[in-house]
Design a protein around this nucleic acid. Structure first.
Lengths: 237, 237
DNA sequence: TTTCGATTTTTGGTATACAATTTAATTCAA
DNA sequence: TTGAATTAAATTGTATACCAAAAATCGAAA
């Protein structure tokens, strides 16, 4: 609870993350309803969210800042399309930063934090069982963000938040379900380590978990679809 | 040269970093002409930069994203004032990330990169000798950003860029010149290690360099000034 | 001096206008 | 029919005017 407040205060309010465009598009991207490369026309977003261009542009700016969206002058915005090199980098960065947040989480986690993580993990399972694929993906990402939040390092939290977001795009582009699924019992073992207050173990688990995902990526495809923006965005609320 | 282009392409254009307000205010902050807490009224910035509120607001938004500026609803923007806890975090993050960029820089640096770093270091010295305090500060920060750029990790570059920016605010608040000055021969030893292609050494040097700065901070003051915005911003161009 | 209330200033947001550019459509030529 | 050129339409970037709501300021009364 307190965490949510903090998060909203420090992150949402200022930069315009309370922006409906930001929220909606971000969520749609996280849930893979809005594939990389999708064009994001201002007028269309105005219509969809019933808001003026001012707000749309602010939202797009925020999204651009978190690298979920790419803007090119005079040609507008579209959902970012990380290259294989970008993907490589993002995971290298995660492998550098997140073992630290896991370590700190193990040192700082309260009973409530653990409960939150467990609940989170449960919901993820539930979504997975219910074949709610997009939702499970988003939850899986949020798990990592939650750990960063528990670590108490707001600065690293910001970075992790961004990296996890971009990972959603990367997974959309370069992940193939056929391969081993992002084993969610990794998450559970992580929770155990954090709950037991074992920083070293949490750190190690996080690192190998990330490496697992990383090495399961396949950089040969190019996924390029273009469907209706409105349908995708309105399906999420 | 190529670096600069890349930088401008990837960073400036998109998010609105070509914005005169963004550029001017960022620079003024880096050079300590705009102390933490300074109020940034929209109308005033319009006048100063001869631009409409549209642009001013976009610039302030971008600055808020990079955490140089704080916006509170209905009360506008002001130069951010990192708390001691923030400062602590920023340097912990730098101590985590920058040793890595230094290491990678040592592995990837070209002859041109080294030349650039040397030139940079020279200019920093020159500014210092000329008592151009603000300028030397900015150059000192840019040195770290330059290393991150050389590392080739664009993602980490983005983080370092932000952390270095915030460090300018932190130094403005919590640094006391009486103490040992940010020894610029640290920078030179770093350049040596990078030029010699010694990743381990570069990594270690960077880490201890950052720890040096970090431990020299003094969190007892509160620096609170309020002078003319126009004077400060126009002094920089 | 302090407090309360009214006035003025700022901010957050919408709508509108318009030039510059991009994109799409249409025409014309090979 | 295809390709190139030209024209028309749509989109972005910026400025401006406008308004409501919140904040800051000021002034008068206690």
């Amino acid at each position: 609870m307190k965490h949510d407040m903090e998060f909203e205060d420090e992150r949402d309010r200022n930069v315009g993350r309370a922006n409906p465009v930001f929220i909606g598009v971000e969520r749609a991207i996280h849930e893979h309803r809005l594939p990389p490369g999708t064009r994001l026309a201002e007028a269309e977003l105005c219509e969809i969210y019933g808001v003026s261009r001012t707000i749309v542009r602010a939202g797009l700016q925020a999204l651009t800042h978190s690298q979920l969206v790419t803007m090119v002058p005079n040609r507008g915005a579209s959902v970012a399309k990380p290259t294989p090199a970008d993907a490589q980098e993002v995971f290298e960065a995660r492998e550098l930063i997140e073992p630290r947040t896991a370590r700190e989480a193990a040192r700082h986690a309260t009973r409530d934090d653990i409960a939150l993580l467990l609940q989170h993990s449960a919901e993820e399972h539930k979504a997975l069982d219910a074949r709610e694929y997009g939702r499970s993906l988003r939850l899986s990402g949020l798990f990592h963000v939650e750990i960063a939040r528990i670590s108490g390092q707001k600065t690293l939290l910001g970075f992790v938040d961004q990296l996890v977001s971009r990972s959603a795009l990367i997974i959309a582009l370069y992940w193939h379900r056929e391969r081993a699924r992002c084993d969610s019992h990794h998450h559970e073992r992580l929770i155990d380590a954090i709950a037991a207050g074992k920083p070293d173990e949490a750190e190690t688990l996080m690192r190998s978990h990330l490496i697992d995902i990383h090495t399961a990526l396949d950089f040969r495809e190019d996924g390029d679809t273009q469907q209706s923006l409105r349908d995708r965005l309105l399906g999420g609320e």
